[in-house]
């Protein structure tokens, strides 16, 4: 379970998160929507301890992420993260990309790491690209590689930060299909996304962020189908 309690976060004078409360249960899929600059991505960065927080707590399976005694590198093994930019390692083949972290972080043998990596790559549909170099692949394929690379660490949670935003429109579908696949596997996911239709389809819970606060949260039917707050209505009328 991921529990976000009263989280505040500022960059200098700019307060981006102004008290966020959010709970994600095992097996749940939470989508976060909202305008650019509303703090959606920052929250993911705070959950993964890439950014520090100014107040509040983030608890993952009972461990306080921002406590000084927490081993962040160990914690991150439980929190797979995929970014807007796929960031494939250009000097490694697809298989080596996905096998690197299991090998050096978890200390698996090369064979075992590659076995796990191969399994995840086949799962996301890259089974025929194992020995290609990622720079020769499309953005959609590289983003699926990024997903497989995170999955190879076998994390119970996955965080997705606008994973389709940097893609050409015709490549968005294949990445969303991969996310659907993970949902069907029962993966616990937090998706920051601009794909409203997708959020409606896969989520158990949707949170609408506005200027650092959760303006409205509930089932997709409530928030997206029948929004109560004026700001939510305005946002949805703009993007739909």
């Amino acid at each position: 379970m991921i529990e976000v309690k009263g989280v505040h976060k500022s960059f200098g004078d700019l307060e981006v998160l102004k008290g966020i409360d959010l709970t994600v249960n095992r097996g749940g899929v939470v989508s976060i929507i909202g305008a650019s600059g509303s703090g959606k991505s920052t929250l993911l960065y705070c959950i993964n301890a890439i950014e520090k927080i100014n107040a509040g707590n983030i608890i993952v399976d009972g461990i306080d992420v921002h406590d000084k005694s927490t081993d962040i590198n160990e914690l991150r093994q439980n929190l797979g993260m995929v970014f807007q930019q796929w960031n494939s390692f250009p000097h490694l083949t697809v298989l080596e990309n996905a096998a690197l972290a299991p090998q050096i972080v978890k200390g698996f043998s090369k064979e075992k790491a590659q076995e796990i990596a191969k399994k995840e790559l086949i799962h996301v549909g890259l089974g025929d690209k194992l020995h290609e170099y990622p720079t020769r692949m499309s953005g959609g394929q590289q983003q699926r590689l990024a997903i497989a690379r995170a999955l190879a660490m076998e994390p119970p949670y996955m965080l997705f930060d606008e994973v389709t935003s940097a893609l050409d429109p015709e490549l968005v579908g294949e990445v969303l299909d991969t996310l659907r696949l993970l949902r069907d596997d029962g993966m616990t996911m937090i998706c920051v996304t601009h794909e409203i239709a997708f959020a409606k389809e896969v989520s158990d819970k949707v949170a609408f962020f506005h200027e650092g606060l959760i303006e409205e949260m509930g089932t997709p039917e409530q928030v997206l189908g029948n929004p109560q707050k004026e700001r939510t209505q305005q946002f949805l009328s703009k993007v739909l």
């Binding site: 993964n48 890439i50 590198n73 160990e74 991150r76 093994q77 929190l79 797979g80 993260m81 970014f83 930019q85 960031n87 390692f89 250009p90 000097h91 690197l100 972290a101 050096i104 972080v105 978890k106 990024a146 690379r149 995170a150 660490m153």
Partner: peptide, 24 residues
């Protein structure tokens, strides 16, 4: 961002230097 991605996989600072920043 590539370094961030590596850190998010659980790599330590030194591991990102050794396996990502130096080779790339």
């Amino acid at each position: 961002n590539m370094v961030k991605a590596a850190r998010s996989l659980g790599m330590t600072y030194l591991q990102t230097v050794r396996y990502v920043r130096v080779p790339i």
